[in-house]
């Protein structure tokens, strides 16, 4: 039995290996195997990490590290950050669920936006002038300490509106 469970976990690691951009929607049951997998790779590459702060939908700040060259979606997945539904199309610019909001000074430092990213962003909830798609932002050293906010979903917006009125 234990062997079966172990194999099962291995299979998950493997699956993830093939599809590194697997959406960040897994529950902890699936992630048990993945955690050890990612932490091992992290040890190997921990020399030149960049710190990123995410603010989740509950307003909590989560501080994690990523490697230069990773996209912000990669970080969310590697770190098992639990943002419901984030990254549905696995970073292929086809969903806008990886929408993140930045402060203006950070936004300016994020690099150019393509028309295709803007097109997808136009479908995002709670679009702002400093919105970007997390799967399109590549981490660089100069982004050290940046803050990225995960926007509320429609339901959240509606609920908070209901609450205030």
């Amino acid at each position: 039995m234990a062997l079966v469970a172990a194999l099962r976990r291995l299979a998950h690691v493997k699956l993830r290996d093939y599809s590194p951009r697997m959406a960040a929607v897994t529950s902890s049951v699936w992630l048990t195997g993945q955690r050890s997998f990612t932490s091992r790779t992290q040890c190997l590459r921990s020399d030149n990490k960049v710190t990123v702060n995410f603010i989740n939908r509950d307003g909590e700040k989560i501080t994690v590290k990523g490697s230069p060259g990773d996209s912000l979606l990669d970080i969310v997945i590697n770190e098992d950050l639990d943002f419901d539904g984030f990254g549905a199309c696995e970073g292929t610019l086809a969903c806008s669920t990886c929408h993140l909001i930045f402060d203006e000074d950070v936004y300016k430092n994020l690099g150019p936006v393509t028309d295709e990213e803007m097109d997808m962003l136009d479908l995002a909830y709670g679009l702002t002038d400093t919105s970007r798609l997390g799967c399109q932002i590549c981490l660089t050293k100069s982004m050290e300490g940046m803050v990225a906010r995960v926007p509320e979903s429609v339901a959240d917006i509606r609920q908070s509106k209901d609450g205030s009125s």
Binding site: A23, V25, C89, T92, A94
Partner: peptide, 19 residues
């Protein structure tokens, strides 16, 4: 011709295979 959109199937498959 929109195969990327179908990537959601990977997540659905994980859900379906959940115990």
């Amino acid at each position: 011709d929109h195969p990327e959109v179908k990537n959601v199937i990977n997540t659905f498959t994980q859900t379906a295979k959940h115990t």
